[in-house]
Amino acid sequence: MVRSSRVLPADARRVVAQGGFGYLEGARWNRGALWFSDMTRRKICRLSPGEEPEDVAEVPGRPSGLGFGPDGAPMVVSIEDGRLLRVGSGGLDELADLAPVAFHPNDMAVDREGRAYIGPQGYVFGSDPVGVGLIIRHPDGRIDTGGEDLIFPNGIAISGDGSTLIVAESFRAPRARLTAFTVTDEGALVDQRVFAEFGSPDTETIDGICIDSEGAVWAAFPWIGEFRRVREGGEVTDVIQIEPDTAAYPNGGTFAVDSVLGGPQMRTLYLLISDTSPERLGNSFDATGRIEAIEVEVAGIRD
């Protein structure tokens, strides 16, 4: 692994939302606003620049991965009951029951055709890891799988031209890694390959990711409180270090959970951060979350 000496200064970041949040996941930029899941409060939330955050919908089965259909309607993975849902004007509509084909579906990316690529956890924590493929839900309702032997596929992102999908294998041993696929015109995943590798998942486990306009990946490393910009092959060009606030949160660490590029010029990197610990997360997702932002050099992908 190549580490960069360019650590972005802490005073370049600003807090854009805090107070009342729990464990924040599923960062997505859509139609001029930041969307995310508050897993603790079981809410889908939206934050428009310069405004207060708002709760858009409640997901009783606990929301995680977010995406948007071609019509702009939000889609969300409901973890506890294993369903893919659409948020409509009348509430939540089921698009797919994933429980028969996926244990503990989690993060998701949706392409411009409306295909949903979903990463199942695949195994119970504490047991031996089980390799799985991604679940692909097509707009016509068909369910396929793509890839194989992925260990805890977590953060998922699709390149601007739709030709590449990258997924974080959070607990791949002996080294956590990003895995890439070529996406065919029919939405199939082929040419499975390693995009980048890191250290042991005991310390350098990867959570949420996003892709910028140069094809580099911003990856979140929760255990060590870092966001890194990574090029294919493993070169790290930029690092954001989140220092723990031990005075305010003496019972937990500062988790770098997820990020996404947005803002008027698509150069604002929104950082989803939660102060918690693995023990506090448990099944209740006990955490205190906030959202920070920093301006970066390379823009994101416009929706």
Rank of each mutant, 00 (worst) to 15 (best):
M1D: 06
R3E: 09
V7E: 09
P9T: 10
A10P: 00
D11R: 13
V15Q: 11
N30L: 07
A33Q: 08
W35A: 05
M39I: 15
K43E: 15
P49C: 04
E52W: 03
V56K: 11
V56C: 07
E58S: 13
G61S: 15
P63H: 03
G65C: 05
G69M: 13
A73W: 06
S78W: 08
E80N: 11
D81Q: 14
G88M: 07
E94F: 09
L95K: 12
D107M: 06
D107G: 02
A109Q: 06
R112N: 07
G114R: 01
P120T: 08
Y123C: 00
Y123I: 00
G126S: 08
S127L: 13
V130Q: 13
G133H: 00
H138E: 10
D140R: 03
I151G: 01
G155D: 02
I158F: 07
I158Q: 00
V167L: 02
S170E: 02
L178P: 01
T179E: 04
S200N: 12
I209C: 03
C210N: 07
S213R: 14
V217W: 06
W223T: 14
V230S: 03
E232N: 09
E232H: 10
Q241F: 04
D245A: 05
A247Y: 06
V257F: 11
L261E: 03
L261N: 01
L269M: 02
Y270V: 02
D275H: 15
E279K: 14
S284M: 06
I294V: 15
I294S: 00
E297P: 00
V298T: 15
